[in-house]
């Protein structure tokens, strides 16, 4: 017996497009809370998207809602990573890819500047040595 043969009265039919689970909208509220925290205490936070039960359609929905902002950073380090500010300043959509282009992890970071963008003091020191070497060679 198939379900079609049974008169079913569906209450509150799941709305929206196929593939949407309804797990994405609550994330907007969590982001709001995190943005508040960033403004009040300066504490950055992040949501690990790969750890949540989100379908590709959910991610698209979220991406669509947040939109894109003015800054898009591309990092070439064992595959491309993109660190893009969304339409909400301080909210960054960060995607890490491997060399084959597959997504290895995905975060939404709430911070003024993502840590990965900043140069590490020890690397800056190496840069300083390089500059000194260049100048000594002039």
């Amino acid at each position: 017996m198939s379900l079609d043969a049974i008169p079913i009265h569906v209450v509150n039919a799941p709305s929206g497009e196929p593939g949407l689970t309804g797990n994405a909208p609550p994330l907007l509220r969590e982001l709001l809370e995190q943005v508040r925290r960033l403004l009040d205490t300066g504490e950055p936070s992040a949501i690990d998207l790969s750890a949540l039960p989100l379908t590709p359609a959910d991610l698209d929905w979220l991406h669509d809602k947040l939109g894109s902002g003015e800054i898009a950073v591309a990092l070439q380090a064992n595959g491309e990573s993109t660190l893009n500010e969304t339409g909400c300043p301080g909210v960054w959509w960060i995607t890490h890819r491997n060399e084959q282009g597959a997504v290895t992890s995905q975060f939404i970071e709430v911070t003024f500047v993502p840590e990965l963008v900043k140069a590490h003091p020890r690397d800056v020191a190496i840069g300083q040595e390089q500059l000194e070497f260049m100048i000594s060679d002039l």
Binding site: S50, A51, N78, H96, F107, H120, R122
Partner: peptide, 26 residues
């Protein structure tokens, strides 16, 4: 030839997989 940012990126992914807070990667 593996840079610090490559390593940081790797650790961020690893921390994510280990269910550590996203900020633990650093």
């Amino acid at each position: 030839g593996i840079t610090r940012r490559t390593f940081l990126k790797y650790c961020a992914t690893l921390a994510s997989m280990m269910a550590l807070p996203p900020t633990a990667g650093r």
